[in-house]
Computed example of a mutant assay.
Amino acid sequence: MINIALQGADFFAYHGFYPEEQKIGCRFLVDIAVGFEPVTDLKDGLHNTVDYEKVYTIACEEMKIPSKLIETVGQAITNRIQNKYPFVKTIQVTIKKLNPPLTGRVAQSSVTINYPPTT
């Protein structure tokens, strides 16, 4: 199994349940890990592997779409990776919302989406 990962992809986005969050926006960090078995020998080319530049582009595009729940964004990223690379075996997407608007100081809140789902 080969694993590729993006860690700490930094985005400013407008996700949040409350209208103020969708107006003000905040910073998010996204971690994505993808595990796969190569279909054929890699031969030092991108056509038989998961291209982390394309994975990053997927994350960028989904982070631009405001959502009430970061779970929704994480699932959308996961679904698009599955569709783009049907040979993947595992995907883990973690989205961290920095300084969430709570009554006390909290560094981050986060959600993790796993494919296949863990039980």
Rank of each mutant, 00 (worst) to 15 (best):
K68W: 02
K97Y: 01
S110Y: 14
M63Q: 07
D44C: 09
I58L: 04
T40W: 11
Y18K: 03
I65F: 05
F17L: 12
P19E: 00
K96E: 05
L69F: 08
I91A: 08
P101W: 01
V88R: 06
E61Y: 09
A59P: 03
S110E: 13
Y18R: 07
Q75N: 14
Y85E: 10
P116R: 13
V73E: 00
G35F: 00
Y115M: 13
A76V: 10
V30F: 03
I95C: 02
F12Q: 04
P66Y: 04
M63R: 06
I95E: 01
V34Y: 01
G35C: 05
P86L: 06
T78M: 11
H15C: 04
K54Y: 09
V34G: 00
L102I: 14
P66D: 08
Q92S: 14
A107T: 09
V39Q: 15
T72V: 04
K54F: 09
K97A: 01
N83W: 13
D41F: 06
I91R: 05
V111H: 09
G45C: 14
V39Y: 13
I91L: 10
R27K: 14
G104V: 13
I65W: 04
G8Y: 01
K64H: 15
V39P: 10
F87Y: 07
H47A: 14
G25D: 07
K68V: 00
P101I: 02
L42F: 14
D44E: 14
E61A: 11
Q82P: 00
H47C: 13
I70P: 00
D41N: 12
T40K: 10
V111R: 12
D31T: 09
D10N: 12
L29V: 06
K23W: 03
T94R: 07
E53I: 12
Y14P: 02
N3Q: 12
G45S: 15
N99G: 08
K23I: 08
F12V: 08
K68Y: 01
L102W: 10
D10P: 09
S67E: 08
L29G: 07
G35E: 02
V88L: 12
I65T: 13
C60K: 07
S67G: 07
P38V: 13
A59T: 05
D44S: 12
T90Y: 08
D31Q: 07
P116V: 14
G74N: 02
K89H: 12
L46V: 11
I32V: 15
G35V: 02
